[in-house]
């Protein structure tokens, strides 16, 4: 175990996004946070009809336009140019966040600096330095039927991101329901991390050693299998 190297078994961001995409249900309304979570749309399983919401007032947007064909009045919350799918709609910002807080979205997926075992999320600033910016993160964690996180299992310097209690400033309290990491799929239930899947090639003890809070097992732990070539 001493020569065990996480990087040998850890999933790439694309593989994490692929795994998260498998859980997006047919017919659902989904908000993908700016950055890494946006990648999930690329891996939406075929045959599922998913409508994507973006905070600045668009439902039903599609792929990015070709370079040179952008219309900069048609952007997503990350200020990237988008296109519209048939059936898309526009609305103002208060309606957009009514969709969020009012429980009308089926799923919101965000990034994370830390996730605590009770579902607390820290994802908007690391300390008190620099220019703070919160955007829609504090709203998106409330109201969606499921709030999921995609993240590396540990920080770049190897510290656990799944912790007993967040040390970074909170985005929301007890809001996350499922975490997709580079090593595992973990649910949050009754203030506990419940391990659902882990990468093959890693023991439970090895996974626990890089997790900052107890991983509980409730039934089978499946292998976290993803396409190799992502």
């Amino acid at each position: 175990m001493s020569d065990f190297n996480i990087s040998d078994v850890a999933l790439s961001n694309a593989q994490i996004a692929w795994r998260a995409a498998q859980d997006i249900e047919d017919g659902s309304y989904v908000n993908l946070g700016i950055g890494f979570p946006e990648m999930i749309a690329k891996f939406q399983p075929e045959g599922r009809d998913v409508t994507y919401h973006t905070e600045n007032g668009v439902l039903g947007f599609g792929k990015a336009p070709l370079e040179g064909e952008e219309d900069w009045d048609l952007i997503n919350a990350g200020k990237k140019a988008i296109t519209l799918n048939p059936g898309a709609s526009f609305f103002h910002h208060a309606d957009s966040f009514a969709m969020v807080r009012g429980g009308h979205l089926d799923l919101a997926v965000l990034g994370a600096y830390q996730i605590a075992q009770n579902g607390d999320l820290a994802n908007w600033r690391v300390g008190s330095k620099g220019v703070p910016a919160v955007g829609g993160a504090m709203d998106l964690v409330h109201g969606a039927k499921r709030v999921a996180v995609v993240t590396d299992h540990v920080t770049k310097d190897g510290k656990p991101k799944l912790v007993e209690a967040c040390t970074f400033p909170l985005t929301g309290v007890a809001c996350v329901t499922r975490v997709y990491t580079s090593l595992a799929v973990v649910d949050i239930e009754d203030g506990k991390f419940i391990l659902r899947e882990k990468v093959p090639g890693m023991t439970l003890a090895q996974l626990q050693a890089v997790t900052g809070a107890t991983l509980h097992v409730d039934g089978d732990v499946a292998d976290l299998n993803v396409p190799e070539d992502l």
């Binding site: 905070e55 103002h92 910002h93 208060a94 957009s96 966040f97 969020v100 807080r101 220019v131 703070p132 910016a133 919160v134 955007g135 829609g136 993160a137 504090m138 709203d139």
Partner: peptide, 10 residues
């Protein structure tokens, strides 16, 4: 700077 969550601002 008064920082306000986006939905709260709206």
């Amino acid at each position: 700077l008064e920082l306000v969550p986006q939905g709260t601002l709206a």
